[in-house]
Design a protein around this nucleic acid. Sequence first.
DNA 1: CTTGGCACTCGATGGTGCCGAGTGCCAGAT
DNA 2: ATCTGGCACTCGGCACCATCGAGTGCCAAG
Lengths: 343, 343
Amino acid sequence: MSDERRLQILRAIVQDYVATSEPVGSKALLERHRLGVSAATVRNDMAVLEEQGLIHAPHTSAGRVPTDAGYRLFVDRLSAIKPLSRAEKTAIQQFLECAVDLDDVVDRTARLLSSITHQVAVMQYPSLTRSSVRHVELVPMPGQRLMVVLIVNSGRVEQRVVEVERDLTDEAGGETLSLIRTRLNAQAADQRLVDAAAALRSLPTQFEPADRALVRAVVGALQDALVEEREERVVLAGTANLVRAGTDFPTSIGPVLEALEEHVVLLRLLSSVEVDDAAVAVRIGQENPVAGLHATSMVSTRYGAGNDLVAGLGVVGPTRMDYPTTMAAVRAVATYVSRILAE
Amino acid sequence: MSDERRLQILRAIVQDYVATSEPVGSKALLERHRLGVSAATVRNDMAVLEEQGLIHAPHTSAGRVPTDAGYRLFVDRLSAIKPLSRAEKTAIQQFLECAVDLDDVVDRTARLLSSITHQVAVMQYPSLTRSSVRHVELVPMPGQRLMVVLIVNSGRVEQRVVEVERDLTDEAGGETLSLIRTRLNAQAADQRLVDAAAALRSLPTQFEPADRALVRAVVGALQDALVEEREERVVLAGTANLVRAGTDFPTSIGPVLEALEEHVVLLRLLSSVEVDDAAVAVRIGQENPVAGLHATSMVSTRYGAGNDLVAGLGVVGPTRMDYPTTMAAVRAVATYVSRILAE
DNA sequence: CTTGGCACTCGATGGTGCCGAGTGCCAGAT
DNA sequence: ATCTGGCACTCGGCACCATCGAGTGCCAAG
């Protein structure tokens, strides 16, 4: 059963290549790993691995380099996520704890992640869709207009201004608004955004005919704000790390930078990972649907306050990456930022 | 008066160097510009220019390259901002016109600026400090807490939660809040943020002693929101352009990317340009206070809805940059985005 | 003050040869 | 059947070298 040994050799190749960034040859492998066999045997096994498309030789007389498929196998079967040390964990926690508001949490998290992985951190702002409603506020404005303010438990605020048929800045208008506000919040508060949108649909019918148009306008604006995800932002940190890793990219880091600027695309990438809770997703090289990222790997997971894994976060780096460590870092950071957000 | 001719030679050197990115020698200069003198004369003048610190030879037998001081002189006295063509102007206008909201305006503007200048665009979000208050809203929350919401005319919303001494969710609390809200808005609405902060200082004294602590807490939170500029964000676009211009940077683009990630620093750079309306500010090389940007130039100006030039916008690129064209582009984009925002 | 001429400098370019890591393959050992 | 040592071969990387040419500074003459 030399199958087993071949996989060990693959693992060794990946580890060495990640460590040295140079193609690894049979001899060098023997020096660093005490496999109980000779160089010739290793060479034979390497030939098989190459046949299977797991490794590849840049040119005739050079060592081997893992292919995307090789990394994939390594990640799936040959490595375990390497847990962080206690010291690292407390450092993460302390760094995140002194954040003063949501923006600061996101900013700090992204910087932290990039600095401990030495790669580009990508972090989605907590998304509306999975959050819940904290409060809805109605603000009458001059000129027969009404501002609808939606406050989400993630701390985000959305607002819409609607035109209404009458001026609400007077006494009577205030009472009407107060009534609407109360019922609105009774229906929507603490609901998930999607649920709130559904729950509000029947609200107009609970009011007297005279007020229905008004309520309908308010609910319409609110549903717009509830459903639309346009405030979904993504922040980057550590793009300078790409330069350091520049030699790992076949052509140049230009296309990578370009791809990273397409925030919409990044969002899709972050969102489209499978929903396995607490799992860290890895996209390796060509597995990435974006051409600019074909020479990169993306390690990502989800995070969010409480049980709702509201948004995605991860890193982008060269395929030649220390996957176990990176995966551990991403998972740990996601865990801690979730904990911070939960309060 | 050969002083004049020397400046023309400097101008020619800058233009050629910008165009070819290669040190320009006396002979090459004669081919591209019909100066009425011989190569030897040009050489003599170049020697003088070098003595004055305006140009510099990378090594003994190479052409000359402008120094920061040379560019400075060129920008100040030897060039005129090159107006854009009509076609370019309408293209800018059309591209910006189809933006759907504030975020979209900012996003499109930054991308546009980077794509027409082929450099990194830097754009500050409309700043709070110069905007004015549209409305202040008070929202009672369970647990003796009160949410203070500040709505700014730029469309931005700031919120603070304050602890208060009594529960305000009941009838009496609602009336008190209503009173505070009315006076608050009477004082602050339509004021510039700084003015509003000042105007509110005396508000607590206008209330009965029983309510003063409450009002003071509200005003405190509000002033915090008014004064603090922390929501000031900056967006970048076209960082990939740095790669293309990579050869212009002595070491690598790494430090530049790092500097660009320090949004706080960028904001300070954008804000600290002199307030000459409609002027385009240029910071060349070492003039930049940030070490990472010592090999770059920053061309920036201010923009904003109406007469208030609320925020800054500009580009960062190598010192070897086509200043007249870049300055024109920055100015034009600022003008058009201001126009869009004015509606 | 300008100009042509001249000797000199120095980076860039391209060719050459060597070195060594690494391979594939094969015959013999286990 | 599998592993091992040996051997011939490949090929990129590096150092060395010679050449080339754009460009300079300087000087003497116009």
